[in-house]
Each structure stands twice: as C-alpha cells, then as structure tokens.
Simulated assay, not measured.
Amino acid sequence: MRDQPEQQAPPVQKLRIRYAKRGRLRFTSHRDFSRAFERAIFRARVPMAYSSGFNPHPRISYAGASPTGSASEAEFLEIGLAEVVDPATVHAALAEALPDGLDVVDVVESPGGALADQLEASHWQVDLDIPPAEAATAVAAFLAADEVPVERMTKKGLREFDCRAAVISLSASAGERGSRLDLVLRHGTPSVRPDDVLAGLARTSGRPAVPSPLLTRLTQGPLDPDTGEIGDPLHPMR
C-alpha cells in the first residue's frame, strides 16, 4: 500500500494582502498572477505553511479576482504562515519580489472569518470612447429598466441573466477618452461584471457595444446597505 503523506501543521499566522494590477499588467490573468505570486513568495523567503497530501501547496486563498484586462486597485488574497512574521516585513519583501505593475498595497493580520464574505460589492471606473451626452442617455435608459437581460458564455455554455439588479449606482460624466462611467456593483450569483453592464447599456439604448473600454476597479469590500458605500475589508473600522 502507498505510504500516507505527512500531515502538515496548520498555519500559526494568517495575513491578508491587498494588491493592485496597473498599466500593462492589467492583462495578467488570474492564473498568471497566481504563478507570479508563488514565485515571489519563494524569492522573498516568506515562511509559508503548506497543505497536507501527496502534492503540498502553499496556503494561499484568492478572493474576488478581477477579469483579465481590468486594472484594479483592490485585489485581495490571504496567506497562511508557518512562523509569526511582522506584516510590514512581508509587505517589503513581496514589493521587492513582484514585477512592477503587480504592486502590494497593504498587508495586515487576518482577523479570522472568510475573506470572500467581506467582498460584497465593487466600485468600478469605466472609460469609454464616446461623447458624454451619448453615455448619459444610455445610462438613463438602463436605470429606467426593471430588468436588463444579457448573455455570457460560461463553462456550462451560453447563459442569460439580469444585469440590472446588481447595479447599486451608475452615472456618466466627461472623461479623458470621452466618457467615464462610475459604477457600483453588488457581488452575487451569477457574478455581474462591468462588461455585462456595458452589454446591458447597448441593449437598452439600442446602440452597438463600445469597443475597448478601459476598466478599473477602485475598491471592493463590505457594502453598507444604508449608504451604498463600500468599506475597507482589511481595516473594517475605518
């Protein structure tokens, strides 16, 4: 019989990390980032805890990753460590090991609980190459609709869902490329993404979809149901 694998000790410390995808690195896929991050962990000599089993992996939990092609100032993950380390030391070591454009913003000790449960909504900035008046008209038509069905290809095939219900707020103004949308999306199932909202805007306005939008996630975290504001999942009392 095959020998049973050695059981690894549980983490003695968990750290939560906020990082950004900037510039050309917004085209980094989640898989590419996870590989880059694991290499950075190794180069930085962070004392990682590992999973048990025949193929141990460093204890890294990702949550709320943005779509490929989106810039973001608010990506999150949690790591489990085999030793207690000053979060500031890990911050500095990872900042040195990661490539420019994948930038560590904050590192804190985990207060416990599931990180994913803290990520209830996202605030997006969407830059479009269309006149502001056209964007404002499309936004007004979208917000006036009770439902806006859109389609997206998933692993299980083509799926139709309502993208309107997830939109907490949406407005249009002038921007560097023409128009800028300010969008707050509630997370849920199915997950509604900014490109789904853009498809919905095209549908309700009767205009073709705008090519090559520039998407930037500004924040994501717990949602205040009364104000619609998004809190900081790493510093919930701020």
Score class of each variant (00 low, 15 high):
residue 2 R to E: 14
residue 200 G to S: 00
residue 26 R to L: 11
residue 133 A to N: 04
residue 76 F to N: 03
residue 68 T to A: 12
residue 204 T to G: 03
residue 79 I to T: 14
residue 209 A to K: 10
residue 112 G to D: 02
residue 51 S to R: 09
residue 67 P to I: 01
residue 161 F to Y: 06
residue 228 G to D: 03
residue 58 P to F: 13
residue 83 E to I: 08
residue 126 V to W: 06
residue 142 F to P: 00
residue 16 R to P: 03
residue 48 M to R: 14
residue 74 A to C: 06
residue 55 N to F: 15
residue 135 A to I: 07
residue 133 A to D: 14
residue 103 D to G: 02
residue 108 V to G: 02
residue 85 V to D: 08
residue 230 I to K: 01
residue 187 H to R: 13
residue 150 V to P: 00
residue 93 A to H: 11
residue 100 D to F: 10
residue 222 P to R: 06
residue 32 D to R: 07
residue 46 V to N: 12
residue 32 D to Y: 09
residue 123 H to Q: 14
residue 182 D to I: 02
residue 82 A to L: 13
residue 136 A to D: 14
residue 162 D to P: 03
residue 175 G to D: 12
residue 27 F to Q: 13
residue 54 F to K: 05
residue 57 H to C: 10
residue 232 D to V: 01
residue 174 A to N: 03
residue 141 A to M: 01
residue 166 A to F: 05
residue 71 A to V: 04
residue 139 V to Y: 04
residue 26 R to N: 13
residue 28 T to Y: 03
residue 140 A to G: 05
residue 71 A to W: 05
residue 140 A to C: 00
residue 39 R to M: 11
residue 32 D to N: 09
residue 17 I to L: 15
residue 23 G to V: 08
residue 61 S to H: 14
residue 18 R to I: 05
residue 12 V to G: 07
residue 203 R to I: 00
residue 10 P to R: 12
residue 9 A to F: 07
residue 81 L to H: 13
residue 102 L to S: 07
residue 81 L to T: 14
residue 38 E to Y: 09
residue 36 A to Y: 08
residue 204 T to P: 00
residue 218 L to V: 08
residue 64 G to P: 07
residue 165 A to G: 09
residue 46 V to R: 13
residue 149 P to W: 03
residue 57 H to S: 15
residue 5 P to G: 08
residue 44 A to Q: 09
residue 112 G to N: 06
residue 228 G to P: 03
residue 7 Q to S: 11
residue 64 G to M: 04
residue 83 E to D: 15
residue 32 D to M: 08
residue 223 L to K: 06
residue 105 V to G: 02
residue 155 K to W: 02
residue 28 T to E: 05
residue 5 P to W: 08
residue 24 R to C: 07
residue 55 N to D: 15
residue 136 A to V: 05
residue 112 G to F: 03
residue 226 D to C: 00
residue 168 I to M: 10
residue 150 V to R: 02
residue 175 G to M: 12
